[in-house]
């Protein structure tokens, strides 16, 4: 029970320290900021990177007898994992002035895999579906409202795409006007995203006040 109370009091203190940032930079905020950065970095190093990534995905598979018990300890080691382990170790050569360039092989591999994966996934999961989304019948017999809405969608998509042309200026009767319409659509979209987010952010603030007033002060 004492630790629960301690936890709430620490939480309330840190909360107030963080809120003080709204006034200006002050020793309380600086204290909370330093502690937060330190604790979160320590948490990611030990819990996330070591216990949740490195141990189950590399160490437990490479040294099952040491990191597992029971049946799992009897599984044959996966020696292929020596490759990422080795490439990971190469990154540590950045500590050396002379051998830092060796880590380039690791960077090259990571970049190759990431970009190769990006090419296919962005084409399949985003590019093609977004093109399909912009294709709608602009005239539906007997439904003027839907026809207008679909026309707005198609024209808006095309006009915004014109805005993203780089090899020509936003000028001229066709291109200039289309790009201008594109900007209008972009602004409407930004406004809509902005408006949709406001309430969510306010509810977060309410949640924090609820912690202070309920969990800490027991007022409400």
């Amino acid at each position: 029970m004492a630790t629960e109370i301690l936890c709430v009091w620490i939480g309330a203190f840190i909360t107030l320290c963080c809120f003080s940032f709204l006034y200006k930079d002050n020793p309380f905020y600086r204290f909370a900021e330093s502690l937060f950065v330190g604790v979160s970095a320590g948490y990611y190093l030990s819990v996330v990177y070591f216990h949740q990534v490195l141990k189950p995905n590399l160490l437990a598979k490479l040294f099952p007898t040491f990191f597992n018990v029971g049946e799992a300890a009897k599984v044959a080691p996966d020696y292929w994992l020596i490759i990422p382990g080795f490439l990971g170790c190469l990154m540590l050569l950045r500590f050396s002035q002379k051998l830092a360039w060796v880590s380039r092989f690791t960077v090259a591999f990571v970049m190759g895999v990431s970009t190769g994966l990006t090419i296919v996934t962005s084409a399949q999961q985003y590019l093609i579906p977004q093109i399909a989304k912009a294709i709608k019948p602009i005239f539906i017999y007997g439904d003027i409202g839907q026809s207008i809405s679909n026309t707005v969608l198609v024209v808006g998509s095309i006009a915004c795409l014109f805005y993203f042309f780089f090899s020509t200026e936003h000028r001229g009767p066709v291109y200039g006007n289309l790009a201008k319409i594109g900007i209008w659509f972009l602004m409407i979209s930004f406004g809509a995203s902005f408006g949709a987010t406001v309430m969510g952010r306010i509810s977060l603030l309410i949640g924090r006040f609820a912690f202070l007033l309920h969990d800490w002060l027991h007022i409400i």
Binding site: Y126, L127, Q130, I131, K133, A134, S149, N150, V152, L153, V154, V155, G156, S157, A159, C160, L161, Y163, F164, G182, F185, L186, I188, S189, F190, A192, S193, A196
Partner: peptide, 14 residues
């Protein structure tokens, strides 16, 4: 949200 905003979002993503 469904039409003008969606059109712009599609274009941004494309």
């Amino acid at each position: 949200i469904s039409y003008p905003s969606s059109a712009a979002q599609s274009a941004i993503l494309i």
